[in-house]
Amino acid sequence: MLITTKAIVIHSLRYSEADLIVTCFTESSGIKTYLLRNILKSKKGKLKKAMFQSLTQLEIVANHKNKNTLESIREAKIDIPYKNLHTDIYKSSISMFLAETLKNTIQEEEENIALYRFLSQAFQKLDELEKFANFHLFFLVHLTHYLGFSPNLSSTKHPYFNLLDGDFQIAETNKYCISNQNSELLKQFLKSDYDNFASIKLNKIRRQSFLEMLLLYFQLHLQGFRKPKSLEILNQLFS
Protein backbone atom coordinates (compact mmCIF):
# COMPACT_ATOMS: atom_id res chain seq x y z
CA MET A 1 0.00 0.00 0.00
CA LEU A 2 1.39 3.39 -1.01
CA ILE A 3 1.20 5.85 1.90
CA THR A 4 1.99 9.57 2.16
CA THR A 5 2.80 10.43 5.75
CA LYS A 6 4.91 12.60 7.97
CA ALA A 7 7.78 10.81 9.67
CA ILE A 8 10.47 11.49 12.27
CA VAL A 9 13.79 9.68 11.82
CA ILE A 10 14.71 7.68 14.92
CA HIS A 11 17.69 5.61 13.80
CA SER A 12 19.84 4.96 10.74
CA LEU A 13 22.17 2.02 10.24
CA ARG A 14 24.52 1.39 7.34
CA TYR A 15 23.76 -1.89 5.60
CA SER A 16 26.31 -3.25 3.13
CA GLU A 17 28.32 -0.73 1.13
CA ALA A 18 25.52 1.38 -0.29
CA ASP A 19 22.32 0.83 1.71
CA LEU A 20 20.76 2.27 4.84
CA ILE A 21 18.24 0.73 7.21
CA VAL A 22 16.21 3.59 8.67
CA THR A 23 13.69 3.47 11.50
CA CYS A 24 11.07 6.23 11.58
CA PHE A 25 8.13 7.11 13.78
CA THR A 26 5.41 7.84 11.27
CA GLU A 27 2.25 9.86 11.81
CA SER A 28 0.09 7.28 10.03
CA SER A 29 1.53 3.96 11.17
CA GLY A 30 3.77 4.34 14.22
CA ILE A 31 7.21 2.76 14.01
CA LYS A 32 8.31 1.64 10.55
CA THR A 33 11.71 0.40 9.33
CA TYR A 34 12.82 1.01 5.76
CA LEU A 35 15.55 -0.35 3.53
CA LEU A 36 16.99 2.45 1.38
CA ARG A 37 18.94 0.81 -1.40
CA ASN A 38 22.04 2.42 -2.94
CA ILE A 39 21.46 5.70 -1.08
CA LEU A 40 25.12 5.95 0.00
CA LYS A 41 26.47 5.81 -3.55
CA SER A 42 23.84 7.27 -5.81
CA LYS A 43 24.10 11.02 -6.42
CA LYS A 44 21.11 11.21 -8.74
CA GLY A 45 18.49 9.48 -6.61
CA LYS A 46 15.54 11.26 -4.97
CA LEU A 47 16.66 10.17 -1.50
CA LYS A 48 19.71 11.77 0.12
CA LYS A 49 21.62 10.45 3.12
CA ALA A 50 21.45 13.86 4.85
CA MET A 51 17.67 13.55 5.07
CA PHE A 52 17.97 10.64 7.47
CA GLN A 53 19.82 12.17 10.42
CA SER A 54 18.32 11.56 13.85
CA LEU A 55 15.09 13.48 14.57
CA THR A 56 14.79 14.90 11.05
CA GLN A 57 11.14 15.57 10.24
CA LEU A 58 10.13 14.36 6.79
CA GLU A 59 7.16 13.90 4.54
CA ILE A 60 7.52 10.57 2.78
CA VAL A 61 5.79 8.49 0.17
CA ALA A 62 6.33 4.91 1.29
CA ASN A 63 5.26 1.43 0.36
CA HIS A 64 3.87 -0.27 3.49
CA LYS A 65 3.34 -3.99 2.98
CA ASN A 66 2.71 -4.51 6.73
CA LYS A 67 4.17 -8.02 6.68
CA ASN A 68 6.83 -7.57 9.39
CA THR A 69 9.45 -6.97 6.71
CA LEU A 70 11.53 -3.95 5.78
CA GLU A 71 9.44 -1.34 3.96
CA SER A 72 10.57 1.02 1.19
CA ILE A 73 10.45 4.79 0.63
CA ARG A 74 9.68 6.13 -2.84
CA GLU A 75 10.03 9.85 -2.14
CA ALA A 76 11.03 12.07 0.79
CA LYS A 77 11.28 15.77 1.50
CA ILE A 78 12.04 17.81 4.61
CA ASP A 79 8.78 18.63 6.38
CA ILE A 80 10.14 20.96 9.08
CA PRO A 81 13.68 22.29 8.52
CA TYR A 82 16.00 22.83 11.49
CA LYS A 83 18.35 25.74 11.98
CA ASN A 84 21.06 24.20 14.15
CA LEU A 85 19.78 20.96 15.69
CA HIS A 86 22.34 18.92 13.76
CA THR A 87 25.19 21.44 13.72
CA ASP A 88 25.32 22.62 17.33
CA ILE A 89 27.39 20.01 19.20
CA TYR A 90 25.32 20.32 22.38
CA LYS A 91 21.97 20.08 20.63
CA SER A 92 23.16 17.23 18.43
CA SER A 93 24.28 15.29 21.53
CA ILE A 94 20.84 15.77 23.08
CA SER A 95 19.28 14.69 19.77
CA MET A 96 21.38 11.52 19.73
CA PHE A 97 20.39 10.70 23.31
CA LEU A 98 16.67 11.34 22.72
CA ALA A 99 16.65 9.35 19.49
CA GLU A 100 18.29 6.40 21.22
CA THR A 101 15.79 6.66 24.08
CA LEU A 102 12.88 6.66 21.64
CA LYS A 103 14.34 3.65 19.82
CA ASN A 104 14.21 1.79 23.15
CA THR A 105 10.70 2.91 24.06
CA ILE A 106 8.42 3.07 21.00
CA GLN A 107 7.68 -0.29 19.42
CA GLU A 108 4.06 -0.09 18.23
CA GLU A 109 3.27 -0.10 14.51
CA GLU A 110 0.07 1.86 14.91
CA GLU A 111 -1.13 5.43 14.61
CA ASN A 112 -0.51 7.67 17.62
CA ILE A 113 -1.25 11.24 16.58
CA ALA A 114 -0.85 12.70 20.07
CA LEU A 115 2.64 11.25 20.49
CA TYR A 116 3.66 12.34 17.00
CA ARG A 117 2.57 15.92 17.65
CA PHE A 118 4.39 15.96 20.99
CA LEU A 119 7.63 14.78 19.39
CA SER A 120 7.32 17.13 16.43
CA GLN A 121 6.77 20.17 18.63
CA ALA A 122 9.48 19.14 21.09
CA PHE A 123 12.18 18.87 18.43
CA GLN A 124 11.16 22.16 16.86
CA LYS A 125 11.48 23.80 20.30
CA LEU A 126 14.89 22.24 20.92
CA ASP A 127 16.06 23.66 17.60
CA GLU A 128 14.82 27.15 18.55
CA LEU A 129 15.86 27.33 22.21
CA GLU A 130 18.91 29.24 23.41
CA LYS A 131 18.86 27.72 26.91
CA PHE A 132 18.42 23.97 26.66
CA ALA A 133 20.73 22.23 29.18
CA ASN A 134 17.68 20.74 30.95
CA PHE A 135 15.71 19.97 27.80
CA HIS A 136 16.28 16.20 27.87
CA LEU A 137 15.03 16.07 31.47
CA PHE A 138 11.90 18.06 30.64
CA PHE A 139 11.35 15.89 27.56
CA LEU A 140 11.62 12.56 29.40
CA VAL A 141 9.29 13.70 32.20
CA HIS A 142 6.57 14.72 29.74
CA LEU A 143 7.16 11.76 27.41
CA THR A 144 5.87 9.48 30.18
CA HIS A 145 2.37 10.88 29.61
CA TYR A 146 2.33 9.54 26.05
CA LEU A 147 3.85 6.20 27.02
CA GLY A 148 1.24 5.53 29.69
CA PHE A 149 3.12 5.89 32.97
CA SER A 150 3.00 9.58 33.80
CA PRO A 151 3.38 10.36 37.51
CA ASN A 152 0.07 10.90 39.28
CA LEU A 153 -0.38 14.64 39.87
CA SER A 154 -3.25 14.35 42.34
CA SER A 155 -1.01 14.05 45.41
CA THR A 156 2.12 16.10 44.69
CA LYS A 157 1.91 17.64 48.18
CA HIS A 158 3.24 14.36 49.59
CA PRO A 159 7.04 14.04 50.05
CA TYR A 160 7.68 10.54 48.69
CA PHE A 161 7.56 9.51 45.04
CA ASN A 162 7.02 5.82 44.41
CA LEU A 163 8.89 4.99 41.21
CA LEU A 164 7.20 1.60 40.97
CA ASP A 165 3.61 2.86 41.25
CA GLY A 166 4.09 6.37 39.83
CA ASP A 167 2.43 8.01 42.83
CA PHE A 168 3.43 10.67 45.31
CA GLN A 169 2.67 9.38 48.79
CA ILE A 170 2.93 10.34 52.41
CA ALA A 171 5.17 7.47 53.55
CA GLU A 172 7.77 5.05 52.21
CA THR A 173 6.28 1.67 51.20
CA ASN A 174 9.04 0.00 49.16
CA LYS A 175 12.68 0.38 48.10
CA TYR A 176 11.67 2.47 45.09
CA CYS A 177 10.25 5.32 47.17
CA ILE A 178 12.34 8.49 47.16
CA SER A 179 12.05 11.64 49.18
CA ASN A 180 14.88 13.98 48.27
CA GLN A 181 15.87 16.65 45.77
CA ASN A 182 14.91 14.38 42.88
CA SER A 183 11.30 13.99 43.98
CA GLU A 184 11.04 17.77 44.34
CA LEU A 185 12.64 18.30 40.93
CA LEU A 186 10.13 15.90 39.43
CA LYS A 187 7.30 18.05 40.74
CA GLN A 188 8.90 21.15 39.21
CA PHE A 189 9.38 19.54 35.79
CA LEU A 190 5.84 18.14 35.78
CA LYS A 191 4.45 21.64 36.31
CA SER A 192 6.79 23.30 33.80
CA ASP A 193 6.38 24.03 30.09
CA TYR A 194 8.60 25.12 27.21
CA ASP A 195 8.58 28.71 28.45
CA ASN A 196 9.88 28.12 31.95
CA PHE A 197 11.64 24.74 32.33
CA ALA A 198 15.02 26.41 31.69
CA SER A 199 14.57 28.43 34.89
CA ILE A 200 15.06 25.27 36.96
CA LYS A 201 18.64 25.64 38.19
CA LEU A 202 20.77 22.49 38.24
CA ASN A 203 24.45 21.78 38.60
CA LYS A 204 26.24 18.76 37.11
CA ILE A 205 25.63 16.45 40.07
CA ARG A 206 21.93 17.25 40.43
CA ARG A 207 21.31 17.00 36.69
CA GLN A 208 22.99 13.58 36.43
CA SER A 209 21.28 12.29 39.59
CA PHE A 210 17.86 13.32 38.34
CA LEU A 211 18.50 11.77 34.93
CA GLU A 212 19.56 8.48 36.55
CA MET A 213 16.29 8.49 38.51
CA LEU A 214 14.27 9.09 35.33
CA LEU A 215 16.03 6.27 33.50
CA LEU A 216 15.31 3.92 36.41
CA TYR A 217 11.66 4.99 36.22
CA PHE A 218 11.64 4.08 32.51
CA GLN A 219 13.30 0.73 33.24
CA LEU A 220 10.65 -0.11 35.82
CA HIS A 221 7.78 0.64 33.46
CA LEU A 222 9.07 -0.42 30.03
CA GLN A 223 10.03 -4.03 29.51
CA GLY A 224 13.44 -4.35 27.91
CA PHE A 225 14.34 -0.67 28.26
CA ARG A 226 18.10 -0.08 28.31
CA LYS A 227 20.12 2.97 29.23
CA PRO A 228 21.18 4.79 26.06
CA LYS A 229 24.84 4.32 25.18
CA SER A 230 25.02 8.04 24.40
CA LEU A 231 24.36 8.87 28.07
CA GLU A 232 28.08 9.15 28.84
CA ILE A 233 28.63 11.67 26.03
CA LEU A 234 25.66 13.72 27.19
CA ASN A 235 26.92 13.83 30.77
CA GLN A 236 30.37 14.91 29.66
CA LEU A 237 29.08 17.78 27.53
CA PHE A 238 26.76 19.12 30.22
CA SER A 239 29.15 18.71 33.12
Score class of each variant (00 low, 15 high):
L2E: 13
I3N: 09
I3C: 12
K6R: 14
R14W: 04
R14Y: 00
A18C: 14
D19E: 09
T23Q: 14
C24N: 12
T26D: 09
E27P: 00
E27S: 13
G30F: 05
L35R: 08
N38S: 14
N38I: 04
I39M: 11
I39K: 02
I39H: 07
S42R: 07
K43D: 01
G45L: 07
L55C: 10
T56P: 00
Q57V: 05
E59Q: 13
E59P: 05
I60K: 10
A62P: 04
N63M: 13
H64I: 15
K65T: 15
T69M: 10
E71Y: 12
I73Y: 06
K83W: 02
K83A: 09
Y90T: 11
S95C: 15
M96R: 05
N104L: 11
N104P: 00
I106L: 12
Q107D: 03
E109M: 01
N112V: 04
Y116P: 07
F118Y: 13
Q121D: 06
A122W: 04
Q124N: 08
Q124A: 15
K125E: 11
L129Y: 00
E130V: 14
N134P: 11
H136W: 03
L137H: 13
F138C: 00
F138Q: 02
L140M: 14
V141W: 08
V141C: 02
T144A: 11
H145K: 15
H145T: 11
S150N: 12
S150F: 14
P151W: 01
S155F: 05
S155M: 14
T156L: 14
H158M: 12
P159W: 03
Y160Q: 07
N162E: 00
N162P: 11
L164W: 01
D165H: 03
D165G: 01
I170M: 12
N174Y: 06
I178V: 10
S179F: 03
N180I: 02
Q181L: 12
N182H: 07
L185E: 05
F189N: 08
L190C: 09
N196D: 10
N196W: 01
K204N: 14
R206S: 13
R207E: 10
S209H: 14
L211T: 07
L214Y: 12
L215N: 03
L215S: 05
H221M: 12
Q223W: 06
F225K: 08
I233G: 02
I233D: 01
I233F: 10
